[in-house]
């Protein structure tokens, strides 16, 4: 009959850890790690919040600028609308009639040779604007002056 040379008390003693590892975490270290983690987490959160705030602020600014641009576009359209109203043929016609203008009864087309056309162009270009005659009817005083000058020249 064989007998077990190892007693129960001896085997128990062998499986139980006898000593802690050198770098074991004691309570102060755990607290310190928790604190470090909290600081890191807080920092990251702050960074994220800061970024989010910056984006939100930029977004708001972008929105404001966009609104401003839209307002300017609307103002531009309003001006273009004013221009269209002023240039409306119906209004111009009415205004011209008020000023005594009438539509011409007929247009007269004159055919000229290219040489004559060139000569006419040359003369027109050479004529100073004051002498070429304004499209507007001269005022009463100007008219009187012109008549006086013509009378003197006679």
């Amino acid at each position: 009959m064989t007998t077990n040379p190892v007693t129960l008390s001896q085997s128990s003693a062998e499986v139980r850890p006898i000593a802690r590892p050198a770098g074991r975490l004691d309570t102060p270290r755990i607290a310190l790690l928790v604190l470090l983690g909290a600081i890191l987490l807080g920092g990251a959160s702050l960074l994220y919040l800061n970024l989010a705030a910056t984006v939100a602020t930029s977004s708001t600014r972008l929105q404001e600028l966009s609104k401003e641009r839209r307002m300017l576009e609307w103002q531009r359209t309003e001006k273009a609308g004013d221009l269209a109203r002023l240039a409306n043929p119906q209004r111009l016609e009415q205004r011209a009639n008020e000023l005594g203008y009438r539509a011409p009864r007929a247009f007269t087309y004159v055919t000229v040779s290219p040489e004559v056309a060139a000569a006419l162009d040359h003369r027109l270009l050479a004529t100073p604007p004051a002498e070429s005659g304004a499209t507007e009817t001269p005022g009463g005083w100007t008219n009187l002056q012109q008549q006086f000058q013509r009378w003197l020249a006679r």
């Binding site: 966009s66 609307w74 359209t77 309003e78 273009a80 221009l83 269209a84």
Partner: peptide
């Protein structure tokens, strides 16, 4: 949503016939 502006309509001489204002 950001509303897109509606395009304008011009006649062939460039006069505004339709457009958006505020």
């Amino acid at each position: 949503q950001i509303k897109a502006g509606r395009g304008a309509i011009y006649d062939r001489t460039g006069l505004l016939l339709a457009g958006d204002v505020a």
